[in-house]
Design a protein around this nucleic acid. Structure first.
Lengths: 335, 335
DNA sequence: TCACGCCTTGTCAACGTTTACATGACGACT
DNA sequence: AGTCGTCATGTAAACGTTGACAAGGCGTGA
């Protein structure tokens, strides 16, 4: 691998000159620049990011912390983040957190020891603000931006780029009410998930808007995760208990599909007997039958949004605490 | 951020001693070790990976090159890879390639300029061996292992950890024949995809095994990608053309679901009128109705497999050219 | 002719780590 | 008593980059 020294020797100049030519900084005699550039080309030189990083004290990379990349929404987020970061010349480190809080802390510590530029926090799990305090100080000290993506962590002082889930839930309730699919059940992680709580609040607000009384029997908090099986089990049990819901809002497309499967296995028709509405806008939702009605999750705004906040923070400025992007209802067949 | 120097000063020793204590190498007087360790703890020192990497000439990270992480199988692979790499103390850089060959080369060049440990190549796209030649030399020179994951690139001399797709297709054909679902159509990317070609070969072999003549009308090569829409369109057109298939083997679960949707939109029952069998074992396949019969893709072997090959290659040894893990048929309702 | 300033370039230190080499002390063996 | 080996530790160089500082050359204005 050729280094600055090799190029310098080849071009008959000092390494500083080569560096300056490459950086485009300060004035360089035209023929020197020419010579250096052709040496660079001849040797196939590419700067070693390690050297740059060591010098700068920062590596041009960002960690993306997801709960489990296998969940469709995280994958789509990862794609957008990677693309957006690449445009800024940064790389994406991927970390699966699972649901462990200690692991979150470990990974954050790792981010500081690696001198990353920033961390995109995208788990849906609820994070007690206090749990993060010590490591947040270290992140701040090291100049590493901590930004929530796809969830609103404003309340614990973390700048966030997220969906407006409160409004989304209200839209969902409005849609179901309008189609006559009441009573409306709500199935999601509620207590253990930050996004879940916001969505639940929106659900309650939506009910209130339409003068519908809240019914605890319709509120299904899922302990585990947002996956298919949970949706299946909860729906199956609700049907078995004879809960009289006419529709279900599910906290993710995965939950929704699980619920649909349970309903159909119980002989119910969708949406005639029970309507199902998901959160996610995952592509397969358009191909299952009946096609899933869902609140889309346009992640494309997130990659860019993250970079914007990151640069604002790096510039020393303070980023706007939250930027909320609206969700759109994709009305298909299931609700 | 405390450095070796800080720890050394705090403990009253030289930085070399601190390094040695941390590395556990060479002999250290017990009380010195004690003193150093407590200084490390007191200062909260963590080694700077940048310094280490610069010294070592390698950064402890691996790039994972996927076509599009949004495709379920890549996401699951990414998870497994990350977990396996973490166990080895390595980080995962994620790159979405799309279907661009130039981009592949760029990313590989980037891997060498970053001095990564290795590259996991996981796109399904066909790669002409010649396209890679120059950059492969540079990778080899820089000691960066190039390993195919989830696809067999043995033919162009790249060690591979993959599924035995040839056998998998034969299993699929056998299953469909046994259930009487003939004639069997085959829908996949064939020419443009390395995995697709292997699977197609297995399909042909399977037909031959059962004495079934090959019928070009049943061989649907998909130009685009492995996504839902392609499956939908191809199936819809086949139905419109009146192709008399009794079942379809689809090259991915996404294609399969798309095909199922098209069949049902055309009024066909699954599997009574047409059976559908996918490749992938994605979780949602168990929750669509009818539940998707598919060839699973146990990625958990891949993360570990990749690390094994990586270490073998790093040790100077030559890795076994291919390690093929078998696929299992998950027989559900659709076929 | 001299002083000054600009343009261009070189020298060198620093980022944090690892390790080859050197040093010194101490015990053991001849 | 002298030599040697071992153990514990320190010194310094190297990895590749950037940027502060210095220095040389040259033109311009007085």
């Amino acid at each position: 691998m050729p280094t600055l020294h090799d190029v310098a020797r080849h071009a008959g100049v000092s390494i500083a000159t080569v560096s300056r030519v490459l950086r485009g900084i300060s004035s360089i005699a035209p023929d020197t620049r020419e010579r250096v550039l052709s040496s660079v080309a001849a040797l196939g030189y590419a700067p070693n990011p390690l050297g740059q990083a060591l010098r700068a004290g920062h590596i041009n990379a960002v960690a993306l912390l997801v709960g489990d990349i296998e969940q469709g929404w995280y994958a789509s987020l990862a794609r957008d983040m990677q693309v957006a970061l690449e445009e800024e010349g940064m790389d994406l480190l991927l970390f699966n957190l699972g649901h462990s809080e200690t692991r979150l802390r470990e990974v954050l510590e790792r981010a500081v020891s690696m001198r990353l530029r920033g961390v995109a926090l995208a788990t849906s799990d609820h994070i007690p603000g206090a749990a993060l305090e010590p490591v947040r100080a270290r992140l701040a000290e090291a100049g590493i931006a901590l930004i929530a993506v796809g969830r609103n962590l404003e309340e614990i002082g973390i700048p966030s780029v997220a969906h407006d889930d409160e409004q989304a839930s209200r839209i969902a309730v409005g849609h179901l009410v309008q189609r006559g699919y009441t009573p409306i059940a709500y199935m999601s992680r509620i207590r253990k998930s930050a996004t879940g709580r916001v969505r639940f609040a929106g659900y309650l607000a939506g009910l209130a808007e339409h003068g519908i009384a809240r019914d605890p029997a319709m509120e299904w908090d899922i302990a585990e995760s947002y996956r298919f099986k949970a949706g299946y089990n909860v729906m199956r049990d609700a049907i078995a208990r004879g809960v009289g819901m006419r529709s279900v809002i599910a906290g993710s497309d995965e939950l929704a599909l699980g619920a649909m499967a349970a309903a159909r296995d119980a002989g119910l028709r969708i949406p005639e007997d029970v309507a199902v509405l998901g959160f996610g806008g995952l592509e397969w939702g358009g191909y299952v039958r009946p096609a899933l009605t869902t609140l889309d999750a346009d992640t494309s705004a997130f990659g860019k949004g993250f970079c914007t906040v990151l640069k604002a923070l790096a510039g020393g400025g303070s980023a706007p605490p939250v930027s909320l992007v609206p969700r759109r209802l994709i009305a298909r067949e299931s609700a």
